[in-house]
Design a protein around this nucleic acid. Sequence first.
DNA 1: ATTGCTTCCTGAGCGC
DNA 2: TGCGCTCAGGAAGCAA
Length: 269
Amino acid sequence: MPELPEVQTIINGLNRIVIAKTISSIIEKRQGTLVFEKGLKICEFGKIKSIERRGKYIIIKTSKDLKLIVHLRMTGKLIFEKDLNNTSSHSRAEIIFSDKTKLIFDDVRTFGKIQIVNSNEIINALQKLGIEPLSDEFNAEYLKNKLKNRKAPIKNVLLDQTVIAGLGNIYVAEILFRAKIHPAIPANKIETVSLKRIVLETKNVMQEAIKHNGTTISDYRSVEDKTGEFQNFLKVYSKKICECGVEIQKIKQAGRSTYFCHKCQNYET
DNA sequence: ATTGCTTCCTGAGCGC
DNA sequence: TGCGCTCAGGAAGCAA
């Protein structure tokens, strides 16, 4: 499931491969994958001018003042393909370039979408996003302020994209393990010294995961169709035994599985 | 304002 | 081999 490091890896790949290519057409292979801004008239898509990330969103800007806003959700992939005759098993949309290459949006579970809007259009979901975990503004003070009225478990609140943009289930588990924080502690009960560890480990985990091209548990692939390597560095997510020798606990929080070590992650604020 | 439940969807893995 | 069941989960929409 693509989270910030996977999305960043994809963007790095796109910037190597498809920047400046001219889009000749975009083909929808499964209805509902492409979402056009209401009333938008498109004559030409233009050239790919820039590719940026915000949270888990990929924002592709073109020379014809359009934005393609891609969200991969659970199983979405953007795979570059040199042969127009080739496709993939779950191709949902294909961005065709004038040089007879294409970018395939492949998505098994079909939750992913590509929104196509005017470059000046402000997307509600993007506007509501919290700050980027790798920015300097993400610090203990920011977190303390954001969490002060949140009594939900810290695990759930860290997954809230309006608090921090880009974390998902795998990385939150790893961050809380490294910060030695129990996932069920109410967010507003966590002391500043612990918040500082969360901030530090969030940045560490994000940087290390980007360095290793993200985490592939099952579906995630880079633009070049390669797996990430950070799965080799995971300490708790989908693990059975902690490195301390104790059995990893698996619980449900807000409908999602949480992995943690009850010995290393004490229920202390 | 905050929280949690449901929904979308397909394929893998499991027991029988 | 194949059937039916459970699980995986990001975020929108909704009710409380």
